[in-house]
């Protein structure tokens, strides 16, 4: 569901160690420039590998942590239909995390290491999930705005230069559009409901609007890694370009709901044909990113508790597999006869 342009240190291209290395990097860049895809066993610069591992892992962690704010409402969904839909959506997010962890593993990092980094608090995930889901309307706002912003970010990633990441994104984007539509449908129902329901919808928009805009990451002027990622075709559009696109498609959707976007400075600019927003409060973004958002501790606490509570299941499955292997001396062929 959710990517966020998270800039983090370490992605600087190193100066090539030798003439041979420089030649390989030049040929690598030529392949990228020809729009060839890079596959796991192909040679790639270390900076490219590390940038991708970090970005794909952050994306995977975001999917996994992203299940928590919505999972919070599964037992309290207002109807059976809404509950079915929400369970399916949360299950999709889990699946998206799995696709992405697998894609990251093709670059030489293990699943265990990635999980360990998340649980130890050393990995980043999208800061949007450190906000609480206080009312049912938040489930609508998340689907509409958070998934909407994620889709805007993810569609260009389907053309990313790294094959396994691009393929995972194609699969994810296919599954994603129901997420946004179900969210908007919740908002529409509330906006057309009782005054109390309308108020609930407005309150959710008020709280999710700015954090959603921040999902696109720092403004281009502040974003140090954009240029290299663009050259490598990991990234196709800048943070500000994607944010603007999101604003332009989302404001009319808010108008249709007859809800007010919580930005007194918002205006339509006839000359550029864009909606112009007021300034974004980046200090809030930095605060949440550094771990001081409303739910940072709670989210990691929940992941750790789930990991610990599931340990006996993992151990039992491993023990069962060992026992089974000892008795049959293999056995996989019974399940997968490739003929």
């Amino acid at each position: 569901m959710y990517t966020q342009a998270l800039d983090s240190p370490g992605a600087e291209p190193r100066s090539p160690a030798s003439a041979g290395e420089a030649e390989r990097e030049r040929r690598f860049q030529e392949r990228i420039d020809r729009d060839e895809k890079i596959e796991p066993k192909d040679w790639m610069p270390e900076g490219y590998r590390q940038t991708l591992i970090r970005q794909i892992a952050q994306h995977a962690h975001s999917e996994i942590v992203g299940m928590l704010p919505e999972g919070n409402w599964i037992t309290r969904a207002p109807t059976l239909r809404r509950k079915l839909v929400l369970i399916a959506k949360v299950q999709d997010e889990g699946g998206h995390g799995m696709y992405l962890y697998s894609a990251a593993e093709t670059l030489g990092v293990s699943r265990g290491e990635l999980i360990e980094q998340l649980l130890a608090g050393r990995a980043k995930y999208s800061s949007i999930f450190n906000y609480p889901t206080l009312t049912w309307a938040d489930i609508g706002a998340i689907g509409w705005l958070v998934d909407g912003a994620a889709i805007m970010n993810q569609i260009p990633l389907c053309r990313c230069s790294y094959g396994p990441y691009a393929r995972a994104m194609v699969r994810i984007c296919k599954e994603e559009s129901f997420h946004q539509r179900q969210g908007y449908e919740i908002m529409l129902t509330l906006a057309r409901g009782t005054p109390a329901q309308r108020e609930m919808a407005q309150d959710a928009l008020n709280r999710w609007w700015w954090p959603s805009l921040m999902m696109f990451g720092p403004s281009d002027a502040e974003s140090v890694h954009t240029a290299q990622s663009m050259r490598w075709k990991i990234k196709r559009f800048s943070n500000d370009e994607l944010r603007q696109r999101f604003i332009d498609v989302t404001v009319p959707q808010a108008q249709f709901l007859d809800l007010a976007v919580p930005d007194p400075a918002l205006r339509w600019d006839e000359a550029s044909q864009h909606f112009i927003t007021g300034p974004i409060d980046w200090s809030e973004f930095q605060t949440v990113l550094k771990g001081h958002g409303p739910c940072n501790r709670e989210r990691l606490g929940a992941r750790r508790a789930a990991h610990d509570a599931g340990r006996w299941v993992r151990e039992a499955a491993a023990a069962y597999a060992d026992k089974h292997r000892d008795r049959t001396g293999g056995g996989a062929e019974r399940y997968a006869q490739a003929v």
Binding site: M98, S102, E105, R111, A321, H324, G331, A332, R334, Y335
Partner: peptide, 13 residues
């Protein structure tokens, strides 16, 4: 279509 981790073949399926 992709990959996954599993303790044995049945779990993989």
């Amino acid at each position: 279509v992709g990959s996954l981790h599993a303790a044995d073949a049945r779990m993989a399926l």
